[in-house]
């Protein structure tokens, strides 16, 4: 990132501001989309998990993807990040087509994701987990690895960056522990911090708050807002409606694989279509996490 944080901040605010003028309808075009998906379809046998005709994500925004259990949110994430091959569809990121690219190339292009069930590398220390996230490491080649002189300086730079990031995410005191020894909430933080090590343009968080205690939730929210201020686009799946209301600039609602509504959080939560599909009579209460994968299996 060449621009100064201040410039980024102003730009991000500006770009977010323009969302006010976007019509709150499913598939609405955005003024400056960083991600555009078209006719993305993924079926498992007879079950259509994802069938999205058009979806755009605004650059510099925090966009939430919500929907009832089994709506296809995680499958949609898996498809666009290259972890799950779709039956059909095209999508592009910053103008570059991504369909058919393997997951590691998607990440290199700047679209970095985390997972619903955290994937920390248990037998590596927290610091090693962080170092792994850094991109373009010279020491990651089989032959260059044998000559420490080629990569030692870069490794030091990555370590410095990792330590700064760990401090930000409140994990510095556990940096030498095995990642497997961390609590669930700390793992969520570590996964997010590690994804940040990869210098993403768009960070895709799959249920960042699942299993995190309320005290930590608050600091996690602050981190996510801070990332937006740095000019990073955040696209996240979440069940916690308080969180969605609190931090998102734009909300996309999926149900049964399709986008049924989108708009600013306040607007979406009043939308009768959404209330019917998802919120039901209890839309004022915070929804609790209820094992989505189980439901999905039952559906299949």
């Amino acid at each position: 990132m060449s621009a100064s944080p201040e410039v980024n901040r102003q730009q991000a605010a500006l770009v977010r501001g323009t969302l006010e003028y976007v019509a709150p309808v499913p598939g609405a075009p955005k003024p400056d989309p960083i991600f555009i998906g078209d006719t993305i379809n993924r079926s498992f046998g007879g079950l259509v998990a994802v069938d999205v005709s058009h979806l755009e994500v605004q650059r510099g925004s925090i966009t939430a993807l919500i929907g009832p259990n089994g709506a296809g949110k995680t499958t949609f994430f898996n498809v666009v990040t290259g972890f799950d091959p779709p039956n059909s569809g095209t999508w592009s990121f910053e103008g570059r087509p991504l369909a058919g690219k393997p997951a590691y190339r998607v990440a290199r292009d700047g679209m970095v994701r985390t997972f619903q069930l955290t994937k920390v590398l248990s037998k590596l220390t927290v610091l090693e987990n962080m170092r792994l996230g850094a991109q373009g490491q010279r020491g990651e080649g089989l032959f260059t690895a044998l000559v420490p002189g080629l990569w030692r300086r870069q490794e030091q730079e990555n370590t410095d960056r990792a330590i700064a990031m760990l401090e930000k995410f409140n994990l510095i005191h556990v940096k030498d522990e095995f990642a497997g020894a961390l609590s669930g909430g700390q793992r969520k933080l570590l996964e997010m911090a590690r994804a940040m090590m990869a210098n993403p343009t768009m960070l895709m968080l799959d249920e960042p708050m699942a299993g995190v205690n309320p005290a930590l939730t608050q600091s996690l929210l602050e981190h996510i807002k801070e990332l937006r201020e740095e000019g990073i686009t955040i696209f996240f799946v979440e069940h916690d409606m308080d969180m969605v209301r609190d931090i998102s600039d734009w909300v996309i609602v999926m149900a049964q694989g399709t986008v049924i509504a989108e708009g600013p959080p306040a607007h979406v939560m009043r939308d009768p279509v959404v209330i019917d599909a998802y919120l039901g009579a209890h839309h004022d209460a915070a929804l609790t996490e209820t094992g989505e994968s189980l439901t999905k299996k039952a559906d299949a």
Binding site: R105, R113, G133, A198
Partner: peptide, 13 residues
Amino acid sequence: REDEDAVRSLGKN
């Protein structure tokens, strides 16, 4: 060895 998908998600082949 620990988790392939995590490594993939961080841009490694």
